[in-house]
């Protein structure tokens, strides 16, 4: 028979051995990429730090529409509006055995009619290594071009 002190000790040990996960530190950008006939690709000041992550795309002009550094708590949603059409939701669900952060990125498109529901354009699960970077491309804009989301883990 397990005594009350024994149960208390087990509960304490379990509590100590499973501390809450640390939040993940992220820096993310939303960049509007367009073709404007430039010979040399142009990056605004916000996009300059991630120039190397955008250069291979077939656009010549990159303008930052959002740039933010954030700590994402585990199992908490973080929603940000990218522009008039798109919104992004981030959810950190924990780390794997090699310390990669599992991050669920959901991008929604504004409803077609007023009062309608946002439409899920893409939902992706990323495994971000410490210092790792990933991007979501192809979020088409009304006047041509697209929104590119870049995520960088600190």
């Amino acid at each position: 028979m397990v005594s009350v002190p024994g149960l208390t000790l087990i509960a304490l040990l379990l509590g100590c051995s499973a501390p809450g996960a640390q939040p993940v530190s992220l820096h993310y950008w939303a960049v509007e990429a367009t073709v404007e006939g430039r010979e040399i690709p142009s990056f605004d000041a916000g996009a300059a730090p991630i120039k190397s992550l955008l250069e291979d795309l077939s656009y010549d002009t990159f303008r930052t529409v959002l740039e933010k550094g954030d700590h994402i708590e585990q199992d908490r949603d973080k929603s940000v509006t990218l522009n008039r059409l798109y919104a992004m939701n981030l959810r950190f669900t924990g780390t794997d055995d090699t310390d990669r952060a599992r991050l669920v990125v959901t991008v929604t498109l504004a409803p077609r009619e007023l009062g309608g529901l946002p439409r899920k354009v893409v939902e992706t699960t990323l495994l971000l290594a410490p210092g790792g970077k990933a991007r979501v491309c192809g979020l088409r804009c009304e006047k041509g071009g697209e929104i590119i989301i870049v995520l960088s883990r600190s």
């Binding site: 090699t98 498109l109 893409v122 495994l127 790792g132």
Partner: peptide
């Protein structure tokens, strides 16, 4: 343990006519 790189675990869409790859 080996250091593992960033990767895409899954990606999907709910929109008709839209496809996703990685």
């Amino acid at each position: 343990d080996p250091v593992r790189a960033t990767e895409v675990e899954s990606a999907s869409t709910e929109l008709q006519g839209v496809t996703v790859n990685y």
